[in-house]
């Protein structure tokens, strides 16, 4: 299994399955096991285990095998985690983030923003005009918001991503 202490992998899994799900991943027993066995071994709630396994499987990080009992005809679902595909998954996430950051940069550079000094809203110029430059929540005067630091940080990150 990949190193769960790696901040990237840890961050990725936390984002996917949450803190409870990560506890399940860390305490996951070896070999093929049922969801109930996982819940017992990891002391994580069964519904959290099922949700985590579903998300992990959806992201190609868990494998499920179905077994039919020849006597009763009952189906048993056996699970194990397989983290070998984590790198291609991270590559997909990186591609998605790059695309979204580029869209956001275009939007930030092509618009002018106004904010409420109390932090209620951030508005486009046209919306601020419609609201007569008053905050629709608290009635304070809206002020111009320079987004240069925001766009600079965006540009920098897009640049470092595309360099690698």
């Amino acid at each position: 299994m990949n190193d769960l202490n790696d901040p990237v992998i840890r961050g990725y899994l936390t984002r996917l399955v949450g803190e409870d799900g990560l506890v399940m991943v860390e305490r996951m027993p070896e070999g093929e096991v049922t969801d109930e066995q996982i819940a017992e071994a990891t002391e994580v709630l069964l519904n959290v285990v099922r949700r985590t396994l579903f998300i992990m499987s959806e992201n190609k990080l868990a494998v499920c095998r179905r077994e039919r009992d020849s006597n009763s005809g009952w189906l048993t679902y056996l699970w194990h985690l397989d983290m070998t595909d984590v790198d291609p998954q991270l590559a997909k996430e990186k591609k998605k983030l790059t695309k979204n950051l580029a869209l956001r940069l275009d939007f930030e550079e092509g618009n002018v923003f106004y904010v409420c000094p109390d932090g209620c809203v951030r508005m486009l110029f046209n919306d601020a005009v419609e609201n007569e430059f008053l905050c629709p929540m608290c009635g304070e005067d809206l002020t111009f918001k320079d987004n240069a630091d925001f766009t600079d940080a965006l540009k920098k990150r897009i640049e470092t991503i595309s360099e690698k």
Partner: peptide, 17 residues
Amino acid sequence: ASYDDLLAGDVFSPCAG
């Protein structure tokens, strides 16, 4: 190294999942 860019400090990309 290349996947480090998915982190802002210790916060992972919100677009993941």
